[in-house]
């Protein structure tokens, strides 16, 4: 049996004393692609931020095992070093810090190896080419003045440089046009190929045209109400979240 990469049990999370996640169970094995779908306000982003360790999200109950180790009390940088990555829905703008300088510091921290200037430049350049990003982005200030699509691509660039074991993509498809979605999906596939895992959080299923998820979960009102295969995504397409909600409130 494969060892689980992520094992979430009965996870309950509060924001400012209000319960948002009401008992989540989720297991992800190495090499798997999972998708979490659900309407806005259902707790999707809360799950993403909680896994990365945002201080505003308070875990009141349950466990988050990563590689067999409890991580719920670790600071975000420690989690990153263990191999968790979050592609932000709204990446922060950091004036005065260039993309290259930032990524070299980050890669050094995550890999534990000093990144030499020239080899790192080469690595960055090749990754940027894969994502069809212009060279000049390397010397621009982090996310400053980037369009929505450029910010998302920059997130994926960071992912492919840092090579995390688990990539959480929070609404990465929003703000991207069709071509960009394809490019991003190719990069995710390239990275996943092998035993890396991906957790896609999305409102729509645009990205799913290019990714082959192993599991689809529906997150409604703080709970995973249904898990299945790709057919679940199709069901949502057909009935909408309201239809699915109605179905569950009847049960």
């Amino acid at each position: 049996m494969k060892k689980k990469l992520l094992d979430i049990k009965n996870l309950k999370v509060n924001i400012e004393d209000q319960e948002i996640l009401k008992g989540i169970d989720l297991e992800i094995n190495p090499g798997e692609i999972h998708v979490i779908m659900g309407p806005n306000g259902g707790g999707k982003s809360t799950l993403a931020y909680t896994l990365m360790g945002h201080p505003r999200y308070e875990v009141t109950e349950g466990q988050i095992l990563f590689d067999g180790e409890e991580i719920k009390d670790l600071s975000p940088d420690k989690r990153a070093k263990k191999g968790v990555f979050l592609s932000f829905q709204y990446p922060e703008e950091i004036p005065g810090v260039t993309v290259e300088e930032f990524l070299r510091t980050s890669k050094t921290a995550v890999s534990g190896e000093q990144q030499k200037l020239i080899p790192f430049k080469k690595l960055l350049k090749s990754k940027m080419e894969e994502l069809e990003m212009k060279d000049e982005y390397a010397s621009r200030y982090l996310n400053l003045g980037f369009s929505g699509g450029e910010k998302k691509k920059n997130e994926i660039l960071q992912m492919s440089i840092l090579e995390p074991k688990l990539s959480i993509l929070d609404e990465t498809d929003s703000g991207l046009d069709v071509d960009a979605i394809r490019i991003v999906a190719e990069d995710v596939n390239r990275l996943q190929n092998g035993n890396r895992s991906v957790l896609v959080i999305t409102h729509y299923n645009k990205l799913l045209d290019y990714l082959k998820p192993d599991f689809v979960h529906i997150l409604l009102d703080g709970k995973i109400v249904k898990s299945g295969g790709l057919e679940l995504a199709e069901e949502i397409d057909k009935y909408g979240y309201e239809g699915i909600k109605a179905k569950f409130s009847r049960n």
């Binding site: 989690r79 922060e92 950091i94 005065g96 980050s106 921290a109």
Partner: peptide, 26 residues
């Protein structure tokens, strides 16, 4: 949020703050 963003990329809190301050005076 900026500190969290940098920390999520493996950078320690102190380093993240120094980085933001250096960016501020850049």
């Amino acid at each position: 949020e900026s500190i969290f963003y940098l920390m999520s990329r493996g950078i320690s809190e102190e380093e993240a703050k120094a980085m933001i301050v250096r960016g501020f005076v850049e």
